[in-house]
Lab assay of single mutants.
Amino acid sequence: MEVRTIKVFTTVDNINLHTQVVDMSMTYGQQFGPTYLDGADVTKIKPHNSHEGKTFYVLPNDDTLRVEAFEYYHTTDPSFLGRYMSALNHTKKWKYPQVNGLTSIKWADNNCYLATALLTLQQIELKFNPPALQDAYYRARAGEAANFCALILAYCNKTVGELGDVRETMSYLFQHANLDSCKRVLNVVCKTCGQQQTTLKGVEAVMYMGTLSYEQFKKGVQIPCTCGKQATKYLVQQESPFVMMSAPPAQYELKHGTFTCASEYTGNYQCGHYKHITSKETLYCIDGALLTKSSEYKGPITDVFYKENSYTTTIK
């Protein structure tokens, strides 16, 4: 009895394709271990004539594949690729409408935090270190965002349907971005203890939790000093293409032309909904596939993004 075979390709990165001759009487799992086709788990399936010449994702289970996976995804987590594939199996079914010149995501599976993050990423200057993220990001900007969303979920250790947080998501993504040249110098002034300067680099240099107003941050924000008295913390120097200011959701007025974009969060910790506000020729609110415009805006804002380049204080 002759062994019926077909020729397929296996890959971990969709760049390096490895030619395989597979036995049609055995499952993919018996031949390769966990195997995925377009995100779908085909591990328990036997090869079919229609699979001839198709590319299958496999887990990096030998040295060659491990090197290829690390170079593309910059992670050695053995569960990463499987999590990416199972997320992709959902995100490829989502709709990605162009809204006001940006790629958004039609609401499904509690994905409003991903839509808000995706919209924000198209408006701030950011370059990702893992080629996987950078490639998928370019495709997302062009309207094909399924891979990018699935990668975000995998890097953030999230599953489809789980509630997510924009600030946490951005923080994970910033860790995989090139923020080497970003720098922030802060000064804390206390009447009792004097003053202390701190220099922050990388992710810490672009994120701040405690106030939404970048102007206020430049002037000074009140913080408790270690001595128990009130101290003032203010920005001395900022070198970065953008800054992200966050605070627990509270009524906040966004003035046209003073910011790049913002995240609105309605609801409580267990259950809520994100919308995205962007400042173009007027203010726009993007909620999944829905767009509304207004000249002014007041609502429960939790993150505001500002364009920056270089700032030095005039406070002496």
Score class of each variant (00 low, 15 high):
T5C: 15
T5A: 14
I6R: 07
F9M: 12
N14P: 04
N14D: 11
T19Y: 12
Q20D: 07
Q20L: 09
P34H: 11
L37A: 13
D38K: 09
G39I: 07
T43Y: 09
I45P: 05
K46W: 14
K46G: 10
P47M: 05
Y57H: 12
N61E: 13
D63P: 08
E68T: 07
Y72T: 07
Y73S: 04
T75D: 07
D77A: 07
D77R: 05
P78Y: 09
M85I: 11
S86R: 14
S86A: 15
L88I: 08
K92Q: 11
Q98V: 14
G101H: 08
S104L: 07
S104R: 02
W107T: 02
A108V: 09
L114M: 09
T116G: 06
A117R: 04
L118Y: 07
Q122C: 06
K127R: 11
F128S: 02
P130R: 03
P131Y: 05
P131V: 04
A136Q: 11
A136F: 08
Y137R: 04
R139Q: 12
G143W: 01
A150L: 02
A150P: 03
L151N: 01
I152Q: 03
L153K: 05
A154Y: 00
C156A: 07
C156F: 03
L163H: 11
T169N: 04
T169K: 02
M170S: 04
F174Q: 03
L179E: 01
C182F: 06
C190L: 01
C190E: 01
Q196T: 14
V203A: 10
A205V: 02
M209K: 15
E215V: 06
Q216T: 08
K218H: 03
V221A: 03
P224E: 13
A231E: 00
E239N: 10
S240K: 02
F242S: 01
V243N: 01
M244W: 04
A247L: 06
Q251Y: 09
Q251P: 13
Y252K: 05
E253V: 09
H256R: 12
H256N: 14
G257P: 01
C261E: 00
C261H: 00
Q270D: 13
C271L: 14
Y274T: 00
S279R: 03
T282G: 14
L283G: 01
C285R: 07
C285M: 15
D287A: 00
A289P: 08
A289K: 08
L291K: 09
S294H: 14
S294R: 08
S295M: 11
Y297D: 00
K307H: 12
T312M: 14
K316I: 14
K316R: 15
K316P: 14
